[in-house]
Design a protein around this nucleic acid. Sequence first.
DNA 1: TTGTAGGCGTTATCAC
DNA 2: GTGATAACGCCTACAA
Lengths: 327, 327
Amino acid sequence: MKNTNENVNQKVKLDDVANEAGVSKTTVSRVLNNRGYISEKTRKKVNEAMELLNYHPNEIARSLFINKTFIIGLIFPTTNNPFYGQLIFHLENISEALGYKVLLCNSEGREDKEKSYLEMLQRHQVDGIIAGSHNRGILEYDNPQLPLVGIDRYLSENTPVVSSDNYDGGKKATQLLIDKGCKKIIHINGSPSLETPANLRREAYEDVMKENEYYPQSYVIGENVIETIFNENPNIDGIFASDDLIASSVMKEAKRRNINIPADLKVIGYDGSEITRMLLPELSTIQQPVKEIADLAVQLLLKQINGETESKIEWKLPVKLIESETT
Amino acid sequence: MKNTNENVNQKVKLDDVANEAGVSKTTVSRVLNNRGYISEKTRKKVNEAMELLNYHPNEIARSLFINKTFIIGLIFPTTNNPFYGQLIFHLENISEALGYKVLLCNSEGREDKEKSYLEMLQRHQVDGIIAGSHNRGILEYDNPQLPLVGIDRYLSENTPVVSSDNYDGGKKATQLLIDKGCKKIIHINGSPSLETPANLRREAYEDVMKENEYYPQSYVIGENVIETIFNENPNIDGIFASDDLIASSVMKEAKRRNINIPADLKVIGYDGSEITRMLLPELSTIQQPVKEIADLAVQLLLKQINGETESKIEWKLPVKLIESETT
DNA sequence: TTGTAGGCGTTATCAC
DNA sequence: GTGATAACGCCTACAA
């Protein structure tokens, strides 16, 4: 049964183009991929047929044959966050410019979701994965030869990690508060049990505090933590929050308590993403080089995909102190 | 040549599992898809073999055969924006829950990028597309039978559009300013040449102004527009911005000019996304039901994908007025 | 209950 | 220059 014209809903394929142009599939494929010798006349005929039939090559069939999809998996907690939103934007952008598409996965920081996403991405034959939300160990578990790059997260012993220079950032932030005269400075961060480079922010804070003979005190973010901090430390005069969203919560609570910023309390955050700078320009912060991080991550992934070797594992990109009105 | 253990780099396939279990590919496929009759013994054997070899079915090959990818294309200006970041988060989330993956495309509002993304998505055989950034007409141009849903954008005569009730939102915002005693109210919005449902925000503003015998005056966002507004309208006392980011710029400029909000100038925005509420809680705004929009959009797309019909084209979801400190 | 054979749309090899 | 033909990894008649 020839169903060439009967079933309108059928997608047009190489064969249809070949029939229309009166040549073989091979020839059409040649025109499509610019391979081998083809006479101008047939090339033109084929192009016209493709135009006429509005032909779109089936990338799935192609992927199956060449064993490559040009798809990169992106696993991050959520796009609903100024930092990740910006990072993912750049990751997609750069990938697209290099001919790769991007499969988006919002893990919400949940291990089970991350695991099932990882499985899904492998089934879909992605060429590689960039992940920014993880507990050490899970991703490599299955398939050590899947190209992989972490952003601000250790994924395995020898998976490249790209991050901002967290130690330097933590140092700059703490030092600024001290320089501005703060004596009772508190640090708020995410869970330290997650082994991430971001822990270096806290380490730097502690080191700088000790160097200056102050007592370092860190709180882990969670329910009512900010209220607790204010209640337990009436004489607090400086807060270094490990991200800008936390810093903004601190500012809100301070306002509620009629604590004047920066007169009575100085606050500095971390990230400095575009949206935060736009909506909360008064917040001092340590700005991460988001675009550069994305650039490098994609580059390192493509190197792995292309089988090139790269022995450097940890990549730290310079941060920038932005002094605004809260310090 | 048996290459079971020789070539470690090769992906393991159905055949390998079959060999390992001592059955045929068919049987393995049956176990995989729970089809037909299979004895418990073989099922167990096969499962063990899959486990042993760490087998991941090749979804590309499967897609080619069943002519379906379970991938949805998402075309939006950027994830680097509180509203789109949140919307895309939900779109991905819901899709994932329904067994679909998501291919992310940041169009940056550029027609050329959108066009090439559309082409790419078709080549990749996506099952459907949800787009939120568009100039009328382009998407349907090529392939009218590709399932398609617009969010806040008309894509073609009979493509479903999901949006917040923009007219009601514009009305609520304008009415609030009037109720609060504003007499010289200005509206700032995106380009009205883009035929989008969001234009209804401006229309509502104009209608309400006229009803109250005030003179409506709209500015289109662009370079230095906000400064211009303040310069040209020294007696301005109310601004309705068509999104919260614009509203925040207005607030910044007002601060620079020592104009007191809300005493001398009242400001209301539009969107009310989570990040904005968090970073700029003092801004009054019209909140869109982002999750509900995403829910409905995915649902409408899946209906199309499954061949179900739905004659309703325009879907408007209720907005919520959030009164805060700027009004 | 299980196996064999053919095809999904493409590309590459080898003839002509 | 161009055309058969055999893969790529999987699924589903149909046969056994």
